[in-house]
Design a protein around this nucleic acid. Sequence first.
DNA 1: GGCATATAGTTAGTTAAACAACTAATCAAA
DNA 2: TTTGATTAGTTGTTTAACTAACTATATGCC
Lengths: 146, 146
Amino acid sequence: MPNNQFKKGELYSFITGKASIAIARRLQKKFNNAGLNLTIEQWSVLYHLWKEDGKSQQELCNATFRDKPSITRLVDNLEKLQLVKRVASENDRRINKIYLTKQALKLQEQSMGLAEETLNDALAGVPADQINLCKEVLQRVYDNLK
Amino acid sequence: MPNNQFKKGELYSFITGKASIAIARRLQKKFNNAGLNLTIEQWSVLYHLWKEDGKSQQELCNATFRDKPSITRLVDNLEKLQLVKRVASENDRRINKIYLTKQALKLQEQSMGLAEETLNDALAGVPADQINLCKEVLQRVYDNLK
DNA sequence: GGCATATAGTTAGTTAAACAACTAATCAAA
DNA sequence: TTTGATTAGTTGTTTAACTAACTATATGCC
């Protein structure tokens, strides 16, 4: 039987993703302490728009690994916060393109700095080669399941 | 600066825990397909009670890495499903001890089988030593942040 | 053109997470 | 022994995930 090195006690924390939950909580705290009124989920949408503005909601679904209703509501809330605007595509009127506002552009540097800081906290004392191997394993897991 | 091997594109998936989300989704699907009317979060509580029945809610908080309101509501829902019962502790009447019902005991074998299956799906083709290293890194991340 | 199908997005309902504020029971110390 | 602090658990509110059902637009085929 493959991979039965997973004894039950270890099984649990792999499934629950304790480590990534801890990372997300730490980042959220840093946001709160910095007075950034932003959830990690909202930040994750902005993150992909900072990389390329004007993505459609469907593209945001793919990028953030969320389903359509989740993105609809995240964009709703980001619009309420005046951080993004929906603009109907001229070519295909089913599509909403999502554009960052000036306010959102201002948040990029600070929040990305806090995110890098969080990962440095998380990975303190872990050698680079181990991090890389870990990333590869997690990517493989993701590919195995998608 | 330590650990700056994290370029931005990689940063995101580490924070979001794509891999563990994928694992949880796969396990939830297996539960649904098997007709198990159980969320992964509910299962995670049962999991720790199968290991040791009669834990207090606070002990379940620690074990599952959730806060008290989350456990209150999970136990509420598990009680509605008649899978656990709250029993006030005789020594200390602030404490609820949570006990599995017969119905819950029946679910253990099947659901744990599906969980192992899910991890085997997830880790297919990943050598044991890499899995072990990955576990160590994730544990270290968790310890760094708690 | 007209109809079936696919795609983009929204709405509704249930479950869960995070946080704050709360009640009740226990403990400790003056 | 009473007062203050601590601990266990609950309740309320907001945000988000997931599923299913829905609307509207676009596409492809006859």
